[in-house]
Simulated scan of single mutants.
Amino acid sequence: MNTSRLFAYLQLTRPANVVTALADIWAGFAIAGAWTYIIIDWGSGSNEFLINLAWLSLSTIGLYAGGVAFNDVFDAELDAVERPERPIPSGRVTKSNAAWMSFLLLVLGIIAAAQVNLTSAIIALAVAALAVIYDYWGKHQNLLGPINMGLCRTGNLLLGISVIPSTLSTFWPLGFIPLVFVAAITMISRGEVHGKNRNALYGGLAMYVLVILAIASMPILHYTPLWEVLPFLALLSYMIFPPLIKAIRSQNPKLIGKSVKAAVISLIIVNASIAAAFAGWKIGIIVLLLLPISLWLAKKFAVT
């Protein structure tokens, strides 16, 4: 396979977005307390948790890449009109090859999760199903579409927590945070092509504020000093609010697209904030290290 063809296949997987999915897993590890074994209590089962981190990271790569690639498969006819430069309508990747790649990536995600435990495998299967449902049906639904997309991220965070299955019964409600944040992004993104969706933009703004307030309350509940989380929330606010406010004022599709791109990349900061709230600022920084990688990839590959 030559370089240009390989680049076309990589375009289908949205590499910058895949890195944001890794942040879900790493934040899930912080919630479950697994980073303690890896970083602090080295030698007390750390090897096993490190291996599980690798398996679940591979799982989310497969699930996310497969899910977004299937999106282009189902949107091939629409993209031929609205985004003819994309890999399938441009003829650089055939629709059948893209479908096979998407399917195999989802299978990889499920198999990788199964190497950790049965709970992880079941969650991965659910995420794969939710992704395909969104690609085929959910994105066309005004209300259920954003919820469907948000549930994919919820499942991804729970996939990270599932490294210690017993913790899921306590921490599953935290899945509402990525659900609300991603539902907001999905709602806002509907103006990317035609603009004129001010109500959706205001709704997204309100949902972003709700997420920030929810994360800010975590240190109180988990006895982490608030100062360890506030810098991450400040960075998150800096990333998402200025481009969204510009989009609200202008209703310009290009500015809406920039707002969506900033929010997608900012999923890493959301996860870093959660990790800091549960495991301290050092673990938050570890998750945040994914941000420059995602930003670099975002210059090479489309995010939306």
Rank of each mutant, 00 (worst) to 15 (best):
F49L: 08
L53A: 11
T36I: 15
T60L: 12
T60Q: 02
I51A: 05
L63A: 06
S59L: 09
A65C: 12
I38R: 02
N47E: 12
S59A: 15
G62L: 14
D41L: 10
L50Y: 11
S57I: 12
I38W: 01
I51F: 01
G45D: 00
L53C: 09
S46L: 02
I61R: 00
W42K: 04
W35L: 05
A34G: 04
A65M: 14
S57N: 04
L53R: 01
S57T: 07
N52H: 12
A65N: 10
I39T: 08
D41I: 07
G43Y: 11
S57R: 04
L56K: 11
T60Y: 03
A65P: 13
G43R: 01
E48I: 10
L56M: 03
W42S: 05
N52L: 09
T60N: 01
L56Q: 04
S57V: 11
E48L: 06
Y37R: 03
N47R: 06
D41R: 06
S46R: 03
T60D: 10
G45P: 07
G62W: 13
L63F: 08
A65L: 11
S44R: 08
A65I: 06
W42T: 07
L50P: 03
L58M: 15
D41K: 08
A54F: 00
A34Y: 06
Y64C: 06
G45N: 00
N52K: 01
Y64M: 15
L50N: 01
W55E: 04
G62H: 14
F49H: 01
S44G: 14
L53T: 15
F49E: 09
G62F: 03
G43P: 07
S57E: 02
L50M: 13
I61N: 08
A54V: 14
F49S: 10
A54K: 02
I51R: 14
L58W: 10
T60M: 01
G45L: 09
I51H: 06
F49Y: 10
N47G: 07
I40M: 02
T36P: 06
I61G: 12
I51P: 13
I39D: 08
L50E: 08
T36Y: 14
W42A: 07
L50R: 08
I51C: 14
I51N: 06
A34N: 03
E48K: 15
F49T: 13
I39Y: 05
L53S: 00
S44W: 13
A34M: 02
N47M: 02
W55Y: 07
N52T: 00
I38L: 09
I61W: 09
Y37D: 07
I38D: 03
E48N: 09
I51G: 03
I39E: 11
F49W: 04
W42R: 10
T36G: 11
W42G: 00
G62K: 15
I39C: 03
W35Y: 14
T36L: 12
I51M: 05
S59T: 06
S59R: 05
G62A: 14
W42F: 14
G45W: 02
N52A: 05
S57G: 13
Y37A: 05
W35S: 11
W35T: 15
T60K: 00
G43T: 12
G43W: 08
L63I: 10
T36F: 14
S44P: 09
S46K: 00
L50A: 02
